[in-house]
């Protein structure tokens, strides 16, 4: 029994476990600096770091640098995050605080859509976008985020808003605030931590939403980072060092965002997620 109570044993175990989890990423970091012959070796760090992997990888495509693909993706992301955060907040406020006919019905429908496999709607959606000439544009990638940002986020925010005391709304109402005023001046500021969670998730998930990107973007000029990486992989002779260097760069934005908002990220879900 004493061994379970010892103070350093859990730490030792957790350190070992963390190391196992993070090891592939450390290896990735080293591998991005290796040349072809060293890449196979299990050693973590190359004897001489080949920084040119980054420079060459950055310019692997004749016409565009990775900077171009990063700019494409980040612009799309900015639009997505703005749309997702604001419309999800509005919709969640409607469901959490306002009484309107069929509220319960629509709310259940919304939860049901969480379980709907995306494949069922993808073909007609494609046909629809195709008819309006939006295939090979960012519209199909951005527009869905302006429709409430997704059922998962709405649900998350509804739970969060339900946890806020109603006295605040009532007080504002007695002071003559309209519903819109209550939403903008009372609720929005209070749900900021949850909104940060929504923003980060929106960013990371649409960064990784490879299916939609493959489907809707076909001209290299408009490629996202993910598509550019796949173009890299599909080359006849893969320059692995350069590919790993570029793919490592491609996860940097998500990682930076995560560390900026780390506290909100894990705690935010812990406090909002799953009451009830």
């Amino acid at each position: 029994m004493t061994i379970f109570r010892s103070r350093w044993l859990p730490h030792l175990f957790l350190i070992a476990f963390s190391a196992v989890m993070v090891y592939p990423i450390l290896w990735w970091l080293g591998a991005s600096l290796k040349d072809v012959t060293e890449l196979k070796l299990p050693r973590l760090w190359p004897s001489t770091p080949h920084w040119e992997n980054y420079a060459d990888g950055w310019r692997f495509s004749k016409d565009y640098t990775f900077g171009h693909f990063f700019a494409n993706t980040l612009l799309m992301e900015a639009a997505n995050v703005v749309g997702g955060v604001f419309t999800a907040a509005a919709v969640a406020f409607g469901f959490a605080r306002l009484h309107f006919p069929l509220r319960g019905f629509w709310f259940s429908i919304m939860l049901l859509t969480l379980m709907l496999p995306g494949q069922v709607t993808i073909v007609p959606q494609y046909i629809l976008y195709n008819r309006f000439g939006y295939v090979d544009s960012y519209v199909p990638l951005i527009l869905p985020h302006y429709f409430g940002g997704g059922a998962f986020f709405i649900f998350l925010l509804v739970q969060f808003i339900r946890g806020l005391p109603r006295d605040l709304d009532d007080a504002a109402k007695i002071d003559g605030a309209s519903v819109y005023g209550i939403f903008a001046r009372i609720i929005l500021p209070l749900i900021k931590p949850a909104l940060v969670t929504v923003a980060i998730f929106t960013f990371i998930w649409s960064w990784d939403d490879f299916f939609a990107q493959v489907l809707y973007l076909s001209s290299v000029e408009k490629f996202t980072v993910g598509l550019a990486l796949r173009m890299f992989i599909d080359q006849f002779e893969i320059a692995w060092g350069q590919l790993l260097a570029m793919s490592l760069l491609s996860v940097v934005p998500s990682v930076i965002l995560f560390f900026f908002a780390q506290k909100h990220f894990v705690e935010g879900i812990a406090t909002t997620g799953l009451k009830g």
């Binding site: 993070v22 592939p24 990423i25 990371i204 990784d208 598509l227 992989i233 793919s247 491609s250 998500s254």
Partner: peptide
């Protein structure tokens, strides 16, 4: 540390890493 691998998600980048490893 434990969350980190999930952060980089099911992205193409990880797929590339996996394919090489």
């Amino acid at each position: 540390a434990v969350y980190f691998p999930s952060l980089i998600g099911g992205s193409v980048a990880v797929a590339a890493l996996w394919r090489n490893m």
